[in-house]
Amino acid sequence: MHPAPLHPVPDEEHARIASDTFRMLADPTRVKILWALFQQESSVNALAEAIGATPAAVSQHLSKLRMAGLVQSRKEGTFAFYRASDSHVHRLLAETLSHAEHVTGAAAGDDPHGY
């Protein structure tokens, strides 16, 4: 006989939401965009420069992230500024990036990115 799990198996709605979140994070450009936005609010052009992508590509990814509820935007005159909107996703992303450092052989405690 197996002991009862600590948490029950998620219902369909929660499993779908979790899966959708992972799907949004399954693209390296979106990971970079989100990480940058967790550091500070930014415009499309500043994000593009920070992550080494074109503004058009960043705009497309931001659109998907906004529809998924992971980023929010505000207008200031003719400019739009974006910010990450989900602290749970921030923790998930930080843990995943920390795991990536571990997998690539970074020494324990030597975290150059501050994850």
Rank of each mutant, 00 (worst) to 15 (best):
M1Y: 10
M1R: 11
M1N: 11
H2D: 12
P3T: 01
A4L: 15
L6T: 07
P8E: 12
V9H: 09
D11W: 11
D11H: 12
E12C: 08
E12G: 04
E13M: 09
A15Q: 08
R16T: 10
R16I: 08
R16Q: 12
A18D: 04
S19H: 04
S19V: 07
D20C: 00
D20Q: 10
T21P: 00
F22C: 01
R23P: 00
R23V: 05
R23Q: 06
M24H: 02
L25W: 10
L25C: 03
A26S: 15
A26E: 05
D27R: 04
D27E: 13
P28D: 06
T29G: 06
T29R: 15
V31P: 01
V31Y: 08
K32R: 15
I33Y: 07
I33G: 04
W35Y: 10
W35R: 15
F38D: 02
Q39H: 14
Q39V: 12
Q40S: 14
Q40I: 00
Q40M: 09
E41Y: 08
E41V: 13
E41W: 08
S42L: 05
S43M: 09
S43C: 05
S43N: 01
S43A: 07
V44M: 05
L47W: 09
L47Q: 04
A48R: 04
A48H: 03
A48Y: 11
A50W: 06
A50T: 14
I51A: 03
I51Y: 04
T54Q: 13
A57W: 12
A57H: 15
A57S: 15
A57M: 12
V58S: 02
V58H: 06
S59D: 10
S59I: 06
S59V: 00
Q60Y: 14
Q60I: 11
Q60K: 09
H61N: 07
H61P: 02
L62I: 05
L62V: 07
L62H: 07
S63I: 09
K64C: 06
K64F: 13
L65C: 02
L65Y: 09
L65Q: 01
R66A: 10
M67P: 00
A68L: 04
G69N: 00
V71D: 04
Q72Y: 12
R74S: 13
R74G: 06
K75Q: 14
K75L: 11
K75H: 14
E76M: 12
G77A: 05
G77Y: 08
F79E: 14
F79R: 15
A80Q: 15
A80V: 12
F81N: 03
F81W: 15
F81P: 00
Y82C: 03
A84N: 05
A84T: 03
A84L: 06
S85H: 09
D86T: 04
D86M: 05
D86R: 04
S87L: 11
S87A: 09
V89P: 01
H90K: 14
H90V: 08
H90G: 03
R91K: 13
L92P: 01
L92A: 02
L93D: 05
L97W: 05
L97S: 00
H99N: 11
H99G: 06
H99C: 05
H99K: 07
A100E: 11
A100F: 11
A100I: 11
A100W: 13
E101Y: 10
H102L: 08
H102S: 13
V103H: 09
T104S: 12
G105T: 02
A107F: 05
A108D: 07
G109W: 02
D111K: 03
D111E: 10
D111I: 00
P112W: 14
P112Q: 07
H113C: 04
Y115K: 01
